[in-house]
């Protein structure tokens, strides 16, 4: 219970989580696929040391770690927004097909438009092009899900529609793959495995700006989000304008999930699982605490996933998507089983 003690416990938990995240960030830079002495890493960060270590640290590890922080935070906050918006503990970018929608946008740009306009991977046009396409795809799915959930109160119906949408989209993507050339196909398949390291500084800048915009939009909405915990009717009677609030939340969640998915591929289960971990740690439902808490927790989890994915060493890498699934799925199962257990007791 955080009754009467919030003044002490909350900042303590938040500071602790921040320090852990910072530690993980440093670890993610120190350790990587190619072994490097800690001293070399530090020297490279200050622009000294061998050219080889400088390239490894400045062009690979640092952007990679930064991407993990931004992507983890953005995906988790997106999940938090969706869980409150849909009144559904299992809502999240991947579960409801939002990531698939973003994927469709990416597939369309990578597989069809890029070869058409001969846009290379490094051009800034592709950076923002992919982001915009991912936003559009994510937003499209989100609007469909929203329309369904306004008619169907049943959580399961909405989840099933999300699954169907994801399947339909993957069918469309398969069709696109069939008609595309081999190089583009390989780019796309590698993208689907989830990758934090394949991002240039230029793309990282685009991702940062987009994620920040989404975060600000989300944070402006904490008060109505809290009211929505009590239900829609209550929110309306205390003066929340539901239509515009919903639209804002949809936009924020699509921007956050869409931008990350565009550059890092679908990172499974981060968005669903992390908000629950944050609720467990902070023992509150208040979005003023949950939102920064979820963002930090998401960054930490993705940093851990990245450390694990590069652990085999010698250039071998486990796809991040696999690691996040292994971390997230137990949490999701715990939610489903826990909910059913309480329902059965009644």
């Amino acid at each position: 219970m955080r009754e009467r003690l919030p003044s002490l416990k909350l900042p303590l938990a938040m500071t602790g989580l921040f320090l852990v995240t910072l530690l993980l960030f440093c670890a993610d830079i120190l350790f990587g696929g190619t072994p490097l002495e800690a001293g070399d890493v530090v020297r490279a960060l200050f622009g000294e040391g061998t050219p080889e270590s400088k390239i490894i640290v400045m062009e690979f590890r640092l952007p990679r770690a930064l991407t993990a922080v931004i992507a983890g935070a953005a995906l988790s906050v997106s999940g938090l927004l969706m869980q409150t918006l849909f009144r559904n503990p299992l809502a999240g970018p991947d579960v409801l097909g939002i990531s698939s929608g973003a994927g469709l946008g990416v597939a369309l740009t990578v597989l069809t438009l890029s070869p058409l306009f001969a846009i290379t991977a490094d051009s800034p046009l592709q950076g923002w092009g992919m982001i915009l396409a991912a936003w559009a795809g994510a937003g499209m799915v989100m609007v469909i899900i929203m329309a369904v959930s306004s008619r169907m109160r049943d959580i399961m119906t909405v989840l099933i529609v999300g699954l169907m949408l994801a399947s339909a989209i993957s069918a469309v993507v398969s069709l696109l793959q069939y008609f595309s050339n081999e190089t583009m196909l390989r780019t796309y398949v590698i993208w689907t495995m989830g990758n934090l390291g394949n991002i240039s500084w230029q793309q990282l800048r685009a991702l940062t700006i987009a994620a920040l915009a989404g975060m600000i939009l989300a944070f402006v909405m904490v008060k109505p989000l809290n009211a929505m915990l009590m239900g829609e009717t209550f929110s309306r009677t205390v003066g929340v304008r539901m239509r515009s609030t919903r639209l804002m939340l949809l936009a924020a969640a699509s921007i956050l999930a869409g931008s990350v998915t565009a550059f890092c591929g679908p990172l499974a289960f981060i968005g669903v699982a992390v908000p629950h971990m944050a609720r467990l740690l902070f023992r509150t439902t208040d979005h003023r605490t949950l939102m920064p808490g979820t963002a930090l927790f998401g960054a930490a989890i993705l940093l851990v996933s990245d450390l694990i994915s590069t652990a085999p060493g010698g250039g071998q890498i486990i796809p991040v998507n696999t690691v996040t699934s292994l971390i997230g799925i137990p949490v999701v199962l715990w939610i489903i089983l826990g909910k059913n257990a309480t329902a059965g007791r009644r």
Binding site: M1, R2, E3, T84, R87, V220, V222, K223, N226, A227, M228, L229, M230, G231, E232, T233, F234, V238, G239, V240, R279, T284, T285, D286, R288
Partner: peptide, 29 residues
């Protein structure tokens, strides 16, 4: 007060009652 069920049943009694202050608090609550 409607018959609509509370969306988040994990919310504490105090937090739920605090939401009644919604019309009076600032933009962040």
């Amino acid at each position: 007060t409607s018959t609509e069920p509370v969306a988040e049943r994990n919310i504490s009694v105090r937090d739920a009652v605090s939401l009644g202050r919604f019309p009076y608090t600032n933009w962040i609550g």
